[in-house]
Amino acid sequence: MEVLGILIPVSLFLGAGGLVAFWWLLRKGQFDDPEGDAHRILRDDYDDKPK
């Protein structure tokens, strides 16, 4: 059971990594226009000026 001493911190660390990533995405406005971004990548002129 000693392995728990390593596994629990590791799992917490990984979870916290996901939490920080989510916070970063939220700040970057990745959820502002999900529908538009999905369509935007399919545009013909996307390759000319990706943004």
Binding site: D32, D33, P34, G36, H39
Partner: peptide, 11 residues
């Protein structure tokens, strides 16, 4: 006179 236009499809 228009510098930029950005569509938000969700809204």
């Amino acid at each position: 006179g228009v510098h930029d236009a950005h569509v938000n499809l969700t809204l």
